[in-house]
Amino acid sequence: MINFNGTLLSQSEAKITIANRGYKYGDALFETLKVVNGKIFFWEDHYFRLMSSMRILRMDIPMNFTMEFLESEVLKTLEANRLLESAARVRINVDRGEGGKYLPLNSTAVQCNISVEKHDDPFYSIDPEASCVVDLYKDYFIAPGLLSGLKSNNKVIQVIGSIYAKENDLDNCLVLNTNKSIIEALNGNLFLVKGDKIKTPPLEEGGLKGVMRKQILELLAKDLNLVVEEASISPFELQKADELFITNVIKGIIPITKYRKKTYSSDFAQKLVVKLNAKLRLL
Results as ranks from 00 to 15, higher is better:
Asn3Thr: 04
Phe4Arg: 08
Phe4Asn: 03
Phe4Met: 14
Asn5Arg: 13
Leu8Ser: 03
Gln11Gly: 00
Ser12Phe: 08
Glu13Ile: 03
Glu13Asn: 05
Lys15Val: 10
Lys24Leu: 15
Asp27Glu: 14
Asp27Asn: 09
Asp27Ser: 09
Asp27His: 09
Ala28Val: 12
Leu29Phe: 11
Thr32Trp: 13
Val36Gly: 10
Gly38Ser: 11
Lys39Leu: 10
Ile40Ala: 14
Phe41Asn: 12
Asp45Phe: 08
Phe48Pro: 00
Arg49Cys: 02
Arg49Phe: 03
Arg49His: 04
Leu50Pro: 04
Leu50Cys: 08
Met51Pro: 02
Ser53Asn: 09
Ser53Gln: 10
Ile56Tyr: 10
Met59Gly: 05
Pro62Cys: 02
Phe65Gln: 07
Thr66Ser: 11
Phe69Ala: 05
Glu71Ile: 04
Glu71His: 08
Leu75Arg: 15
Asn81Met: 09
Arg82Pro: 00
Arg89Gln: 13
Val90Pro: 00
Arg91Pro: 02
Arg96Pro: 00
Glu98Gln: 09
Glu98Thr: 14
Gly99Met: 04
Gly100Gln: 13
Gly100Phe: 14
Lys101Asn: 12
Leu103Thr: 15
Pro104Trp: 14
Asn106Asp: 15
Thr108Phe: 15
Gln111Ala: 06
Asn113Asp: 12
Ile114Cys: 08
Ile114Ser: 08
Ile114Met: 10
Glu117Trp: 10
Glu117Ser: 15
Lys118Gly: 06
Lys118Cys: 12
Tyr124Phe: 14
Ile126Asp: 06
Asp127Thr: 07
Pro128Gly: 03
Ala130Ile: 06
Ala130Glu: 14
Val133Asn: 04
Val134Ile: 10
Tyr137Pro: 00
Asp139Arg: 11
Ile142Glu: 01
Ile142Tyr: 00
Ile142Trp: 04
Pro144His: 03
Gly145Gln: 12
Gly145Met: 12
Lys151Ala: 10
Ile157Ala: 07
Gln158Leu: 06
Val159Glu: 06
Ala165Asp: 05
Glu167Phe: 01
Glu167Pro: 00
Leu170Pro: 03
Asn172Gln: 14
Cys173His: 07
Leu174Ile: 06
Val175Ala: 05
Ser181His: 13
Ile182Gln: 01
Ala185Lys: 06
Leu186Met: 12
Asn189Val: 05
Leu192Asn: 03
Gly207Gln: 10
Leu208Val: 12
Val211Ile: 15
Gln215Leu: 09
Gln215Val: 15
Gln215Trp: 03
Leu220Ala: 08
Lys222Gly: 01
Leu224Phe: 08
Leu226Pro: 01
Val228Ile: 12
Val228Pro: 07
Glu230Phe: 04
Ile233Thr: 01
Ile233Asp: 00
Ser234Arg: 14
Pro235Asp: 03
Pro235His: 01
Leu238Tyr: 08
Leu238Phe: 02
Lys240Trp: 04
Leu244Gly: 01
Leu244Val: 04
Phe245Lys: 04
Ile246Arg: 01
Val249Ser: 15
Gly252Glu: 05
Pro255Thr: 00
Thr257Asn: 02
Lys261Tyr: 13
Tyr264Pro: 02
Ser265Pro: 00
Ser266Phe: 05
Ala269Glu: 06
Lys271Asn: 15
Leu272Arg: 00
Val273Asp: 06
Val274Ala: 13
Asn277Pro: 03
Asn277Ile: 06
Asn277Gln: 08
Ala278Glu: 15
Arg281Met: 12
Leu283Gln: 15
